[in-house]
């Protein structure tokens, strides 16, 4: 077992352990925090694979965006300090069933494709996955550049921002 494999197993154990804690914790706020750790672990796995961009997106979108959104909605809707009621028996059974089916599907996929190996020659055709290459293509005006969607997205974000302000701005008292 080389160092890379050790890192992989540590990361996997971390993801699985925090994931398990997230679904078994009785306090909903702690669940959200355990989920945060689990998602960070997945980002680590992407780094281990050498996919910096996907890892960065994982951190920015999931850790930075989605978990914060979940925490906000917990604060707004739930009493975060209290224990959750224990789940119904029937629901436990079905959740266990769903977990088993998911596990079986993963095993099936692994057994079918575990012999799949990336050939050395494939690496020559693999696109450049570095962040700078992706950034260049995103803002490039050449044949496969994505500068047009990029600019269009900026219109979308501008519209969304104006909308937020219109919705959130307080009207002056006395106005209709």
């Amino acid at each position: 077992m080389n160092a890379s494999a050790v890192v992989f197993y540590i990361l996997s154990a971390f993801i699985l352990a925090t994931g398990l804690l997230a679904v078994t914790s009785r306090k909903i706020f702690r669940t959200a925090i355990w989920l945060l750790f689990s998602l960070t672990g997945v980002a680590g796995l992407y780094f281990w694979l050498g996919m910096q961009f996907i890892a960065a997106v994982q951190v920015v979108v999931y850790v930075g965006g989605i978990v914060v959104l979940i925490i906000f909605s917990i604060f707004l809707t739930q009493q975060s300090g209290k224990d959750l009621p224990s789940p119904l028996r029937r629901r436990t059974v079905f959740s266990a069933l769903a977990a088993c089916i998911g596990f079986a599907l993963t095993c099936l996929l692994l057994s079918r494709y575990s012999s799949f190996r990336v050939k050395e020659s494939d690496y020559d055709f693999a696109p450049d996955m570095s962040i700078s290459a992706i950034g260049n293509q995103l803002l490039s005006t050449s044949e496969h550049g994505y500068v047009l969607p990029f600019e269009v997205i900026s219109i979308l974000l501008l519209a969304a921002m104006i909308g937020c302000i219109v919705i959130a701005m307080k009207s002056k008292p006395g106005d209709k």
Binding site: A159, I162, G163, I165, V166, K172, D175, K176
Partner: peptide
């Protein structure tokens, strides 16, 4: 409402 210019912008 009060944000006529913003409605038109939208």
């Amino acid at each position: 409402g009060h944000h006529l210019a913003e409605y038109f912008a939208l």
